[in-house]
């Protein structure tokens, strides 16, 4: 069993070029931040290293950090430009019984994060959901389609903080 600080040291030792930081000030478990374009390498390492053995991806969730510049359009709806979108990975080792939380933040305007689908199969649908709700593009994902919203939904992502519903969908009025 290892605590987050020890896991961080292991990652730093094996990926010396990578910028890896830890936020231990949170009331919840410590979160390790990793570069979104190298997350699949770190994930592969975390899964296969005999001291870590993270064989289970408990959850993969998207978050709109809404930390960009907030402006209002003429109708008074808020528009966010810049800032980041994040993906949180909750990992668990069923053999060594330890847990860790990873975070990868990407540009909100042009989001791109490497897929971990070929490492944990369960990430397939989780990543499709994060794409569906936030528009996060998972690079090298084999089948990045919408999963909950209709396939022909317009280019908008409902869980973004500045989301605005369309007026009509296939001739059906959407607002109340």
């Amino acid at each position: 069993m290892k605590n987050p600080e020890e896991i961080l040291e292991l990652i730093k030792f094996n990926f010396p070029d990578l910028e890896v930081t830890i936020d231990a000030s949170l009331p919840v478990e410590s979160i390790i931040s990793i570069d979104p374009l190298n997350i699949h390498l770190v994930a592969q390492f975390l899964k296969t290293n005999p001291e870590l053995m993270f064989d289970s991806l408990m959850s993969l969730s998207g978050v709109d950090d809404a930390n960009g510049e907030k402006t209002k359009d003429e109708e008074g709806t808020e528009i966010i430009t810049g800032g980041t979108l994040s993906v949180y990975y909750h990992l668990h080792s069923t053999s060594l019984k330890h847990k860790i939380t990873l975070k990868a933040s990407t540009n909100r305007e042009k989001p791109g994060i490497e897929s971990v689908e070929n490492i944990w199969k369960t990430a397939d649908w989780h990543e499709r959901e994060a794409y569906d709700m936030f528009g996060i593009i998972f690079l090298n994902h084999p089948d990045l389609r919408r999963i909950l919203m209709p396939y022909d939904w317009d280019e908008s992502y409902p869980l973004r903080k500045d989301y605005k519903n369309p007026e009509f969908y296939h001739g059906m009025k959407v607002p109340y």
Partner: peptide
């Protein structure tokens, strides 16, 4: 009938089946 608890924030819900 009318969208129920999803009447305001239900981005995916039709507000009443009588619309179709």
């Amino acid at each position: 009938n009318c969208g129920g608890p999803y009447w305001d924030h239900g981005y995916h819900v039709l507000k009443g089946v009588d619309r179709v």
